[in-house]
């Protein structure tokens, strides 16, 4: 089997499709024309950069450079989590980044060593794209978890104070918020896992099939990556919320509302 490169003409037809959301936005007054064009341009520029950069990195295949690139990805991811959850980075970013580095690198090395049994654990062809997939998929859950936790605490502060009044320690009083936020955050990933293959064919599997791999090999990879994504997601979400519980409250156990951008 061979894979087909997309020609310039093909790329033109791809961009041509963007006229549909632009026209919808125009006729419905959605004010989404500029954001659509801006996002599409950003996507093109970022992917062009990554495309050239990855070609260079793959050719070089230097373990240190590969690790450095994954670290950059994790740093950007943790920054994005905080920004999207409307949280100020100052108090949370260093600890969140640290935990995300530990979790993601551990899972990535486990995947490469025990699941696909690579000789070179830091092989750029696996280390970087799989790192990106795992990180990218757990990102949304992290954002949902943190956002839900902060909003819940602000909206239902009295429930937290009541528990403190009843002698609870901070972790005991926050346990209901933690449980709820982890549950809410994991819902999309669980739904993904439950409907995969029937409702949608995931990008990785589609990519492998398009690149000429047997669907059975693609399925093996997909199962392994989904499990890895799920495990990384739950650990990332949990650690992210623990960072919030540790750094997001003052010495009296009061939520630092000033930590939120919309406070």
């Amino acid at each position: 089997m061979e894979s087909y490169d997309i020609s310039l003409e093909g790329m033109f037809f791809s961009f041509f499709l963007l006229l549909i959301p632009i026209l919808i936005s125009y006729y419905m007054g959605l004010k989404l024309i500029s954001p659509t064009i801006e996002s599409a341009l950003r996507m093109v520029l970022q992917l062009l950069f990554v495309g050239f950069f990855l070609t260079f990195v793959f050719d070089l295949n230097n373990a240190l450079l590969n690790i450095a690139w994954v670290l950059v990805m994790i740093f950007v991811a943790s920054h994005t989590v905080l920004k999207s959850a409307e949280l100020r980075a100052g108090r949370l970013l260093p600890m969140l980044t640290f935990f995300m580095v530990v979790t993601n690198l551990t899972m990535l090395l486990y995947f490469n060593r025990f699941i696909i049994d690579l000789n070179n654990l830091f092989d750029a062809r696996y280390f970087i794209p799989i790192g990106g997939m795992v990180l990218g998929n757990s990102l949304r859950a992290n954002i949902i978890g943190m956002e839900n936790f902060c909003n819940d605490i602000r909206r239902n502060e009295n429930r937290y104070l009541f528990r403190l009044s009843m002698g609870a320690e901070k972790t005991e009083a926050l346990a209901p918020y933690l449980r709820k936020s982890v549950g809410v955050a994991l819902k999309p990933t669980l739904a993904n896992m439950a409907t995969i293959g029937i409702v949608f064919l995931p990008g990785m599997m589609t990519g492998q099939i398009l690149a000429g791999a047997s669907p059975l090999v693609a399925i093996e990879y997909q199962i392994a990556i989904m499990i890895t994504i799920f495990v990384t997601t739950i650990v990332n979400v949990l650690l992210g919320l623990l960072v919030l519980m540790h750094r997001g409250f003052d010495e009296y156990g009061m939520f630092r509302k000033e930590m939120m951008r919309n406070s």
């Binding site: 528990r163 009843m166 002698g167 609870a168 320690e169 005991e172 209901p176």
Partner: peptide, 9 residues
Amino acid sequence: DEVLSFKAN
């Protein structure tokens, strides 16, 4: 049950 489970209680 939750309040009874707090260490202090």
